Simulated scan of single mutants.
Amino acid sequence: MKNVRKLMMAAAVAVFTISAVGCNMVSKTPEAIKKSPVAKFGKVTITKAQLDEKMAPVITQLKAQYGDNYATNDQAKQLLDQQKKQVLDSMIAQQIVLQKAQEKKLVPEQAKLTEEINKQYDDIKKAYNDETKFKDALKQAGYTEESLKAYIKDNVIIGKVTDDITKDVKVDDAKCKEYYDQNQTEFTEKPNRIHVAHILLKTEDEAKKVKERLDKGEDFAKVAKEVSTEPAAKESGGDLGFIEYNDANYDKTFMTAAIAVPEGTISQPVQTSFGWHVIKDIKKEEYPVKKFETVKEDIRNNLLTSEKQKKVNDTIEQWKKDANVKYYEKNM
Rank of each mutant, 00 (worst) to 15 (best):
M91P: 01
A93E: 04
Q94S: 15
Q95M: 13
Q95W: 03
I96W: 06
L98D: 07
Q99N: 13
Q99L: 14
K100F: 02
K100H: 13
A101S: 09
A101E: 00
Q102G: 00
Q102H: 11
Q102T: 08
E103H: 02
K104A: 03
K104I: 01
K105T: 06
K105Y: 13
K105E: 13
V107W: 09
P108H: 03
Q110S: 14
K112N: 12
L113E: 05
L113D: 00
T114N: 06
T114R: 10
N118S: 03
N118H: 09
K119F: 13
K119D: 04
Q120D: 09
Q120C: 07
Q120W: 07
Q120F: 03
D122H: 00
D122R: 11
I124W: 08
I124K: 06
Y128I: 01
Y128E: 05
E131F: 07
T132L: 10
T132K: 12
K133W: 00
F134E: 04
F134C: 08
K135C: 00
A137L: 05
L138K: 07
K139G: 08
Q140S: 12
Q140L: 13
Q140H: 01
A141S: 13
Y143V: 00
T144W: 13
T144Q: 06
E145H: 14
E146I: 11
L148E: 05
K149E: 05
I152V: 11
K153S: 07
D154E: 12
V156A: 08
V156H: 02
I158R: 03
G159W: 10
V161A: 03
T162E: 01
D163W: 04
D163Y: 05
D164G: 05
T166P: 00
T166R: 03
K167C: 09
V169M: 09
K170V: 15
K170T: 15
K170A: 14
K170S: 14
V171G: 11
V171I: 15
V171E: 06
A174C: 02
C176R: 13
C176K: 08
Y180R: 12
Y180D: 11
Y180L: 05
D181F: 02
D181E: 15
D181W: 02
N183D: 10
N183A: 14
N183S: 10
Q184F: 04
T185Y: 01
